[in-house]
Design a protein around this nucleic acid. Structure first.
Lengths: 127, 127
DNA sequence: TTGGGTGCAAATCTTTTGCAGGTGT
DNA sequence: ACACCTGCAAAAGATTTGCACCCAA
């Protein structure tokens, strides 16, 4: 088991911020926005909280481009889209997740318990 | 258009190495293996070539864990599986890619041209 | 000959971590 | 009080890049 999670002003602000965003910001974007509310918050704290929340399943960590993780305040599994030009990440409103998991599990000896579906392309503004 | 790509011993060795592997090694693993063939190759050269080849569509770049990219010598779209314990990445033999692309494209105004499907779980040896 | 390619090392960027002090319960 | 949390700054990793030289075409 992990350690108990206690209340903290910083963590609360991070969760609330993520829930207001439809895009899926990087740790750095979270940091810069939270700084406007808690000016002396540190980047390390932002990372610690994002990791803790992702590990606890409260938020989702998205590996979009192998460089910088993005975070999603909604932890229900769903599909994402990333624009190759501007880097924006957004939700895609289709839900093949359960079907994919079943189909994959029948084809392997490994134990599958999660899947990430990420579309790439060009968004309206960049095409 | 990108620049013309010329022959190089190093690039050739990298492509050949990737094609012999069923797993999908990181840049660092590629570097350490290629060094046994070309002892004085540099890590920078490995990165430059992997990026160049991925951009040209010759190989696939896989963002598996947000830390380190993995590279796949087979550029045909297919699904992957990553073990949460040992970090091994392997192919999954199902092919929902075309269906996913169609289904997503009908649900968005953005232009979709690619998708990455990555399953997570525990492999036979780690479960 | 020329422009891409390379090795090397320094630089950059992202993320983690040790530490001393702060705070929720 | 006790454990968890934080800010700070240094450390650790991963990847990129500037530069001078090399080599394929």
């Amino acid at each position: 088991m992990g350690q108990p999670i206690r209340y903290s002003h910083q963590r609360e602000a991070i969760i609330n911020f993520l829930k207001t965003r439809k895009d899926h910001p990087t740790a750095d974007v979270v940091y810069n926005n939270i700084k406007q509310i808690i000016p002396n918050i540190s980047l390390g704290t932002v990372y610690r909280n994002l990791n803790q929340l992702a590990d606890a399943g409260v938020i989702l960590r998205l590996a979009c481009d192998g460089k910088t993780d993005h975070f999603d305040g909604c932890s229900t599994p769903h599909c994402h889209f990333m624009c190759k030009t501007c880097g924006a990440v957004k939700d895609i409103d289709i839900n093949p997740i359960d079907k994919l998991l079943n189909s994959a599990q029948t084809n392997t000896d490994d134990t599958i318990d999660d899947v990430s579906v990420l579309f790439y392309g060009y968004c309206k503004d960049c095409k």
